[in-house]
Amino acid sequence: MAHWIFTEEHEMFRESVKKFVEKEIKPYVEQWEKDGEVPRSMYKRLGELGYLGIKFPEKYSGLGLDVITEAVYTEEMAKSGAGGANASLGATLGIALSNVWKYGNEEQKQKYLVPAIKGEIIAGLGITEPSGGSDVAAMRTRAKKDEDYYILNGSKTFITNGVNADYVVVAAKTSDGPTHRNISLFVVDTTSEGYSVGRKLKKLGWRSSDTGEIFFDNVKVPKENLIGEENHGFYYIMQNFQYERITMAIGSVALAELALEEAMKYSKERIQFDRPLSEIQVLRHKMVDMAVDIEKARNITYRALYKFHKGEDAVTEATMAKAYATEMVCRVTDEAVQIHGGNGYMMEYPVQRYWRDARIQPIGGGTTQIMNEILTKRLGIIS
């Protein structure tokens, strides 16, 4: 459905992304799922088209457009049904590059931001740890300053692009100070001595996204690779979470739309009891409920996107969008599988992949339970 948040220019951009998705993404999804990763050539292709630099300034090889334009890209890529591919490509675009752009110095931007926007190198973000999960402040990875270097020790897990990244933005403790004031961010080249990749993790969904464990054994990180100020990393992470959560909500709405479209199409083609499934009232009403659920999530999400675009405090709206939209996509994709019946459980029907890919949404970027805890404070339920 059209929405007032999008201008004519946004819709023109949408058409170009749609054509790209149809021609260069959808035909290769199944192969990428089998390979467990997206080929490097796809990063290069996105760089050539400018899709990796939509919101970044032109001086860094970006397009210098607004975040609503990037939201259009996110929606149409999500509608490709390639959740894993979008996760890998999006990790470079959204969560890794943003930290360098917002908080890095000019030298870091030229060395790490520009080539990544061009698709020449792959980036990742290293925050989650085996023992930490959602508790960012409890991380154990440490970086100890030693003359011109920081000596990095520890490990990270569930890292998108963890196997193939050329550099990772890593969060590590740099002091024994108060909680939330002792974490710093560093750009760590994956060719550094002492840096190693563990297992390439096997997942329920997002199978075309390479996800790995990474380890740091006395890795020497040059002091000039510190992003922003020392011990300000927790603040940087939390700031970036706001837009990451909006992006996850946008992708959830788009994937749910795709699942509903597949369910509606199947219901018109599948004959049971001498009539199409779409003529069975209980299934018709089920699809109506799915559509209403999607529309509620869409409007909550667009409200958050608009406030963020305007530079306003969107923490409450972004948190609500993340909490509602990511749970919604699980409900809708599950119903889509149900409408397909036994075929929905078969690997040749794409709804099974939508259902598998959807399940990570209420977990990644902060669980629904964490979102609800944030909201109890934002709404004044607890002080």
Rank of each mutant, 00 (worst) to 15 (best):
Arg378Thr: 07
Asp289Ala: 09
Glu327Val: 12
Ala82Ile: 01
Gly81Ile: 02
Leu125Phe: 14
Gln352Ala: 00
Glu129Ile: 10
His340Pro: 01
Lys26Leu: 05
Ser88Glu: 13
Arg45Trp: 04
Glu107Ser: 10
Asn86Met: 15
Tyr112Cys: 07
Arg14Thr: 05
Thr92Val: 15
Ile280Ala: 07
Arg207Thr: 05
Gly104Leu: 04
Val169Leu: 06
Leu97Asp: 09
Phe158Asp: 13
Ala165Asn: 11
Arg181Ala: 13
Gln242Gly: 00
Phe56Ala: 06
Ser155Lys: 15
Pro130Leu: 12
Ile5Leu: 15
Gln272Cys: 09
Gly365His: 07
Glu48Thr: 14
Gly380His: 09
Ser192Lys: 09
Asn372Asp: 10
Lys203Pro: 01
Ile159Ser: 06
Gly83His: 02
Asp166Thr: 07
Lys156Glu: 14
Lys59Met: 12
Gly205Ala: 05
Gln242Pro: 00
Tyr195Gly: 05
Leu152Trp: 02
Val136Leu: 14
Asp35Ser: 03
Ala259Val: 00
Thr92Pro: 08
Thr69Ile: 05
Asp146Lys: 14
Arg40Met: 05
Tyr112Ile: 07
Asp357Thr: 04
Gly50Leu: 11
Tyr103Ser: 02
Val315Ser: 11
Gln242Leu: 14
Ile294Thr: 07
Gly62Asp: 11
Val219Pro: 01
Asn164Pro: 05
Glu107Asn: 09
Lys44Met: 11
Gly212His: 02
Ser61Thr: 05
Arg275Val: 15
Glu229Phe: 01
Val169Glu: 02
Ile294Trp: 08
Thr247Phe: 12
Ser175Met: 09
Ser196Tyr: 00
Ala87Arg: 08
Glu107His: 03
Gly251Ala: 04
Ala172Leu: 07
Lys203Glu: 11
Ile151Arg: 05
Tyr43Leu: 11
Arg275Lys: 15
Gly380Tyr: 10
Asn343Gly: 10
Met290Ser: 12
Val100Ala: 05
Lys307Tyr: 15
Gly177Tyr: 06
Val168Leu: 15
Asn240Met: 09
Thr191Phe: 10
Asn240Ala: 12
Ala2Gln: 15
Leu305Ser: 08
Ser131Asp: 15
Tyr43Cys: 03
Lys265Ala: 13
Gln242Ser: 08
Gly53Cys: 11
Pro57Phe: 02
Leu305Gly: 07
Glu70Gln: 15
Thr160Cys: 14
Asn218Tyr: 04
Glu335Gln: 10
Phe13Asn: 08
Asn86Lys: 15
Gly132Gln: 12
Ala172Asn: 06
Glu327Pro: 00
Leu375Met: 12
Ile374Glu: 13
Pro222Lys: 00
Val329Asn: 04
Ile370Cys: 01
Ser98Cys: 07
Gly344Asn: 03
Pro27Glu: 04
Ile339Gln: 03
Tyr51Arg: 01
